[in-house]
Structures are given as C-alpha cells and as structure tokens.
Amino acid sequence: MITTVTLNAAIDKTYYLPSFPMGKVSRVQRFHAAPGGKGINVAKVVAQLGVPVTATGFVGGMNGEIIKQMLTQMEIAHDFISVEGESRICLNILDEANGTSTELLEPGPTVNDAALKEMEVRIGELASRSKIVCFSGSLPAGVPKDFYVKLVSIAKEAGAYVILDASGDALRFGLEAKPDMIKPNEDEVAALLGIEVTDEDALQKAVETLLQKYEMDRISVSLGGAGSLTASKGSSYRVTTPKVEVVSTVGCGDSFVAGMAVSLARNLPLEEGLAMASAAGTSNAMTDQAGLIELEEFEQLRKQVQIDRL
C-alpha cells in the first residue's frame, strides 16, 4: 500500500471563464470541484494507476467533511484527523482567452498540539503497513516548521520508503530526517546548498552533492516542459518529455510523485520509474484538473519519454 499525507488538505475549485478581466464582475458558467492538496492529488493518480492507497492528513469543518465524502465517492481510502476550523478552498481561475491560470489559496485551519500528537501515532500505524509514504505540501497554522522531521522519522522507523515533496523551511528541516527521495525545483536546490546554479551541469553537481549529504536514494528536479533531472546512487539521468498541448500545470508535480511511488511499490527499475513518473506528469498537464490522467494517453506518453544517463 501507498500512504499519502496532506497536512493542509483542500477543496480544489476550478472556474472556467471565457475571459477574466480584473476589477469587473465575472459570471462563472462552468466550474469543477474536487478534493485537493498535494498529497491528495498524489493519491488520486496512484488510485488511477491501480495501486492501493490511503490518504491521511488534517481536515476541518464542513469543507473537511466534503473532502472525505468526495474521496469516498472516488473509492479512495482515507484516514484523516479532524481539527477545529475549516479546511481551505483553493481556487484556480482559467482564463480561456489567453490561457492563463490564476490561483487563490486559502490558509486552512489552525492545528493544536493534541492533533499533532494524534498525527504522529497515525503515521506510525499507516507506515507500518505501507511500502511507500508520501509527504506532500505546506504546513497549516499551528504546525511547527520541523514537523516533517518527526513524521519522516516515524515512517522510516516503521520500515516505509519515504518521499518528501515540500518547499521552504518544511523541506529544509525535513531533510534532517533523511527521506529516501525529494522533488525540489532548481531554486530550492540552490537555496539548500547556498549556491548559485547557472546551468544544467551545475544543477547536476548540486543535486549529486545534496544526495550524498543527506544520504538519500534519489532526487528528482523538475525542469518544467523541458523534463527533469534525477540523481540516484552512482548515476544521474536527464529526462526529456514529449511535447504536448498544456492545459494546466497544476498537479503535474504531484502526478510525477505518484508515478514514482507506484514504480517503487512495483519494484520497477529507476529508468522505468522515471518514464512512469514523467508520463503521469505530462498526462496531467493535458487536463484541466489536478491529479487526473488519462490511462491510454499515459501509456502512449510512457513510451515516448526519453531518458539519457549522464
């Protein structure tokens, strides 16, 4: 089983507008709502790829109940901890005239100490029966900046392979627990090492340095439409993805993580995992919903991913 952890779960709402003029009233004719937050997006793609998954994290209020109800309707197992306050709504406004995407993200509820302790216990329970645990996304109010250190340590002690997809202080502190895999961007790699990354050669060296410093299994760095760079023990890979018509990039990184998690759960070689992860991220970019892939399209893309060993 794969467990995904979303400490700041959300309802993702997408508004489709012919145009989005600033400072004027816009009437929404079409919209879509789905359970969201980075870890939940991972869970949705894992489920679509046919691997058992359980989503956990914090939810609050009526929005939290709606998140759980929607996951149940999608036949995705969940085991959330309820807190006071309302889970956030994340709004994505798609301007169809110029192809832009504007995101508005609420902060979410404040988590108290009792809920933090409960989450530590819950992670231990779920990790003990999971092969992979994915920690994804930001920390809600009330959660210490170093909380991922505890959770990653608990999951690793339970025997799970841990993927951490976070940014800023959450990532910086989380690295202290030595997760097995992280998925930073170029800027985060540079910030973690306190250096300037000027080109792909410098990025490769920086990623390999990070990998060795924190004794990780692999690091994947997204390069957007240009593909990705992955370093593992003793080898680095440059991945080029097929050119597609991008509808929205929201959730592409989460879909990449899901593909990698599924490949690990199935004991696939790293190169096959990179193809699966890249195809999932690319397929998601061709949709207007985060955490959605089209399986036939995914399989075609998987064959078109180019992987070069550096």
Rank of each mutant, 00 (worst) to 15 (best):
T198A: 15
K205N: 11
L203E: 01
L274Y: 01
M276R: 09
S255R: 12
R266M: 14
V247A: 13
D217E: 10
G227K: 07
E271N: 04
I293G: 05
T240Q: 03
G194N: 05
L274H: 01
V257D: 02
E196D: 12
A275H: 02
G253K: 11
A265W: 06
F256T: 10
A226T: 01
N267C: 11
R266E: 11
V244C: 07
A261D: 08
E272A: 09
T241M: 00
L270K: 00
K233F: 10
G253M: 06
L193R: 12
V247C: 05
L203A: 02
A206G: 10
E297H: 05
E296Y: 06
S232W: 15
P269K: 04
V257M: 13
E271L: 14
D199M: 12
A285R: 06
N284H: 03
D288Q: 13
G273K: 00
F256I: 08
I195V: 15
G253D: 09
S283I: 02
I195F: 03
L295C: 04
V257E: 01
V257Q: 04
D217I: 09
K205H: 08
E297V: 14
K213Y: 04
R238K: 14
I195Y: 06
A231V: 00
E271P: 15
A226E: 02
S248C: 01
A265K: 06
V207I: 05
E296V: 02
V257L: 15
